[in-house]
Amino acid sequence: MKKSLALLTAIAALALPMTAQAHRAWLAPTSTVLSGTDAWVGFDAGMSNGVFIPDHAAMGLDGLVITAPDGSRVAPENVMRSRYRSTFDLHLTQRGTYRVANVMGGVVVSYKVDGATRRWRGAEADIAANVPAGATEVTATRSDSRVETFVTLGAPTTEALQPTGEGIELVPVTHPNDLVAGEPATFRLVRDGRPAADLDVTVARGGTRYRDNPEEITVRTGEDGAFTVTWPEPGMYWMNASVRTPANGDQMASTAQYNGVVEVLP
């Protein structure tokens, strides 16, 4: 069991339902660039086949973290959850860029007791207390998920955009609230603080309900984790990257996923 527990210590589980993993998770703001001394922005959050189309399931918001331009945490207002989407409002009272993220992680463990397969999901620190000492065929997978977007009041700033060092994160080279159709934008992906090299990044524009072509773009990160996108048209765009790492000795299997939403202006 000691060896089995060693295999479990690096596993994390998504807070999203496992059935939702085949669907695209998104967190869409009503506006991303605003002016004045204060403003309000609304957000929709859901999982669906087509991005920004609330037709499958609402997103749980237990992992919602809103970082203000000065690095402080801000609470959402008017939080609601309906059948197909969750919604909330954010009152912008500081000038600069806010990072709005739903961050999920934990541990998923599969094991057998008396021949019956069981599963447990929770925090890594709670594994030993929840997996019986006599369990056999113990396997575990660490997973991290981040779903985020960005909004700016006044001039863009970068203090709220610093990576946390957990999971896959977007590190802007081009500011995410300074995107213009027809112009290239460059970002970097990092995983646990290190460059996420050789990852495919899917970029999809919203509005698929009203066109035959999904208009998806796939780009690949370089050795430094950087990738560049030239936006074909204005609109709200969804970006996704994911990675799976198999178990290797005492190193646990792991998965990580990033879902970002940005607005491209004319």
Results as ranks from 00 to 15, higher is better:
Lys2Pro: 09
Thr9Val: 10
Ala12Gln: 15
Ala13Gln: 11
Ala13Gly: 11
Leu14Asp: 15
Thr19Cys: 08
Thr19Phe: 14
Ala22His: 12
Leu27Val: 02
Pro29Leu: 09
Thr30Phe: 00
Gly36Met: 04
Ala39Ile: 09
Trp40Tyr: 04
Val41Asp: 00
Gly42Cys: 02
Phe43Ile: 01
Asp44Phe: 08
Ala45Ser: 03
Met47Arg: 10
Ser48Trp: 02
Gly50Asn: 14
Asp55Ser: 05
Ala57Trp: 12
Ala68Trp: 08
Asp70Phe: 03
Asp70Arg: 03
Ser72Phe: 07
Val74Arg: 08
Asn78Cys: 04
Arg83Phe: 12
Phe88Ile: 00
Val103Ile: 12
Gly106Pro: 11
Val113Cys: 08
Asp114Glu: 04
Asp114Arg: 06
Arg121Lys: 11
Ala125Lys: 15
Ala125Leu: 11
Asn130Thr: 01
Ala133Cys: 06
Ala133Val: 07
Ala135Lys: 09
Arg142Lys: 14
Val147His: 02
Thr149Glu: 05
Thr149Gly: 06
Thr152Val: 08
Ala155Glu: 15
Thr157Ala: 06
Gln162Ala: 15
Ile168Val: 06
Asp178Tyr: 09
Ala181Leu: 11
Ala197Lys: 07
Asn213Arg: 10
Glu215Tyr: 07
Thr218Gly: 10
Val219His: 05
Asp224Arg: 04
Val229Lys: 05
Ser242Leu: 09
Pro246Gln: 06
Asn248Ser: 14
Gly249Phe: 02
Gly249Tyr: 01
Gly249His: 01
Thr255Tyr: 12
Thr255Arg: 14
Val264Asp: 11
Pro266Tyr: 10
